[in-house]
Design a binder for these strands. Structure first.
Length: 308
DNA sequence: CGCATATCCTGACCGC
DNA sequence: TGCGGTCAGGATATGC
């Protein structure tokens, strides 16, 4: 499940292998891949063909490639969301098609193709305008933070908050906005308009590090607790990034790059019944929001006023 | 409007 | 060996 670290590994791979190249042709091989591009796949192709991939930028789980004209600036971007199972691959044109190949980009240099492979089709592609947004500043983490396109966001990303690894993330504002909400802590962490890039795995891991229960009411969260959650997120995301970042030097941009981290380092996620690494108490698994929540019953006690 | 839930999707896995 | 049921969850449409 690609969350922030996995998407960042993919972003670095795209920056390494695709940025600077000119798109010659695009094929969309499944109707669901362009469902968010309302004008349809042919329009997405027309808006991409002949343009230069100027950069690879990320905010939260969204990745986008500003598309520049020969003049150099970019008014639109190719937005990619990996969903649950999406992968971006850089492969030779004669490599056999993957079973779940959904989109394919060829370039004028005749080099390797970019492919979007997605088994479960929760992911998607859209070509959309870059727009100025109230939060201003660089749009996210990219290779060229001073470029004109880095100060605008693709329309579908305009409502997405900055992520915990963004240098401009405002910790105090996060704590303040958290207290304005009437919900549980984990629900808030999964809301991409409050903080982005967090999914089920990193939410559970960060809450374990912060020793906070997922149903703790946001309304009464202290600044110190909010800071502890952010520290937990940054810790686990940075570690996952370090583990996944080792493989992007190859000619293969793969969302599975961080899998080695999962094998060894998850404290609670997917560890139901196994001992908490801190206190040895068996990890608890609860049904929550149509998915699972993992926590340590001793380190993360249920608050009296839990907000389920 | 704020918040919660239903929905999309496919393959792995499990019990019978 | 097959078959039905369950599980995985990001983002959004909807409903209250």
């Amino acid at each position: 499940m690609p969350e922030l670290p996995e998407v960042e590994v993919v972003r670095r791979g795209v920056a390494r292998w695709v940025v600077g190249r000119t798109v010659r042709e695009v094929d969309f091989l499944h109707p669901r891949v362009t469902r968010r591009h309302l004008a349809g796949p042919q329009d997405a192709v027309a808006r991409t063909r002949g343009l230069v991939v100027a950069d690879a930028v990320r905010r939260g789980k969204y990745l986008w490639l500003p598309l520049a004209t020969a003049g150099g600036d970019a008014d639109e971007a190719l937005v990619v969301h990996l969903g649950m199972s999406g992968q971006l691959l850089v492969e030779r044109a004669d490599a056999p098609a993957e079973k779940h190949l959904r989109a394919l980009w060829r370039f004028t240099d005749g080099g390797e193709d970019l492919r979007f492979v997605d088994q479960r089709t929760f992911g998607g592609i859209a070509v959309v305008p870059l727009v100025a947004t109230p939060d201003g500043g660089p749009g996210g983490l990219g290779e060229s933070p001073d470029a004109a396109w880095a100060h605008r966001l693709p329309v579908p990303v305009a409502h997405i908050a900055r992520d915990p690894l963004d240098p401009a993330f405002d910790d105090a504002a996060f704590a303040r906005r958290l207290r304005e909400r009437s919900t549980g802590l984990k629900r808030a962490l999964l809301d991409q308009s409050l903080v982005s890039g967090v999914g089920n795995i990193y939410a559970d891991e960060a809450l374990w590090r912060a020793r906070l229960h997922y149903a703790r009411p946001t309304r009464s969260t202290t600044r110190a607790q909010a800071d502890a959650v952010l520290a937990g997120l940054r810790e686990v995301m940075t570690a996952a990034l370090a583990a996944g970042g080792t493989s992007f030097d190859s000619l293969y941009v793969n969302v599975n790059g961080a899998s080695g981290y999962f094998d060894r380092s998850l404290a609670v996620y997917g560890q139901g019944g196994r001992p908490c690494p801190r206190c040895g108490t068996p990890v608890r698994r609860d049904a929550f929001m149509n998915r699972s929540s993992f926590s340590c019953p001793r380190c993360q006690p249920v608050p009296r006023s839990a907000h389920w």
